[in-house]
């Protein structure tokens, strides 16, 4: 395989990893706050529909991306109202959100089927982007890719280096104690959920604005679920989420390249199942390593009703 081909392989791995990474980072923060939102796929597809609609109507990828984030956050607000406001079952509410999102995105996108627009602009730094081999790989992506990397650093810094991050983690581990200490449990959770929604929406907008710049119903094709698996795989840590996204994105992309190359032949069905298999393996490894049995936020998925 030539250097140029290898370069392209790596390039596509990064682009395939980006939507997984962005959505997973959002969900990671939500789960660290103790809320399980299974509606990632739904928020993502609405972000894709609204992102494309806004991008197409205004001609601006940036406005499209912002609209996608707003749409994801809007859906998340609905979820927050249910699980934080009314303390409903988080699993059921999240699943309902996914189903709702898939339906409503079809409605929003109905007028935009069969339309296309130019892909979001790619970075081009004179000199740097033209460097041999690394130029395009490091300096030639669209802005979503860099946003994903910046988000990884930002989430890591927020969770481990700020007081607000500490508060959020404390609430995720024990909301009753947090509440007793006077921490604003519900406000923090709502903010986390909105952030998660905006990230899922941005990941969806990336699909319809940059990855394959058109809208078509169901275009997320299960990436929201892979992002959920990714959070568990990463054991709720941002840098591991980055590594996992490259692994999960790479697994599917590399097998396509392997087929085209004509060398190795791995069943496509196996590669589709791989992210989930890897997640199960990761869970087992984590469970064996950590004697307490889990590294998940202790209050994850438990509804919180403040006692007066």
């Amino acid at each position: 395989m030539s250097a140029e081909a290898l370069n392209l392989v790596l390039f596509t791995v990064i682009t395939a990893a980006t939507p997984l990474l962005i959505a997973a980072l959002g969900e990671l923060v939500v789960e660290r706050a103790g809320v399980l939102n299974l509606g990632v796929e739904g928020m993502m597809i609405v972000g894709a529909a609204v992102g494309f609609a806004a991008g197409y109507s205004t001609g601006s990828a940036l406005i499209g991306a912002l609209a996608g984030m707003a749409a994801g956050a809007t859906l998340a607000a609905l979820f927050a109202l249910l699980v934080v406001g009314l303390a409903t079952n988080q699993v059921a509410s999240g699943l309902a959100l996914t189903i709702f999102g898939l339906g409503v995105s079809g409605l929003i996108g109905a007028g935009f089927v069969g339309l296309k627009r130019e892909a979001a602009p790619h970075l081009a730094i004179p000199g740097l982007s033209d460097l041999p081999f690394v130029g395009k790989l490091i300096f030639g992506h669209d802005l979503f890719v860099y946003a994903g990397l910046a988000l990884t650093v930002g989430v890591w810094w927020f969770l481990t280096r700020t007081r607000a991050g500490l508060t959020l983690r404390a609430i995720g581990d024990n909301h009753a104690s947090g509440h007793a200490l006077g921490l604003p449990v519900r406000r923090v959770r709502v903010q986390a959920i909105l952030f998660g929604g905006a990230c899922a929406g941005l990941a969806g907008a990336y699909l319809s604005l940059a990855y394959t710049p058109f809208w078509t119903p169901g275009m997320t094709a299960g990436r929201g679920w892979i992002a959920l698996a990714l959070v568990v795989f990463a054991s709720w840590r941002p840098w591991r989420a980055l590594a996992g996204a490259l692994l999960f994105g790479g697994a599917t992309t590399l097998q396509l390249h392997a087929q085209a190359w004509g060398g190795v032949r791995i069943p496509a069905q196996f590669m589709s199942a791989l992210p989930y298999v890897v997640t199960i393996v990761a869970l087992i490894v984590l469970s064996v390593w950590d004697r307490r049995g889990t590294t998940a936020p202790a209050a994850l998925g438990k509804p919180f009703v403040p006692d007066r």
Binding site: E4, A5, L8, V9, T12, A16, P19, L207, Y211, T212, F214, T216, G218, M219, A221, G222, R223, T252, T253, L256, H257, Q259, A260, W261, G262, S272
Partner: peptide, 18 residues
Amino acid sequence: TWFDPGKEADAAKALLAQ
């Protein structure tokens, strides 16, 4: 898959690279 635009695009890129 019959329908996964992202994956179809990746396959297209892989084939063009070859």
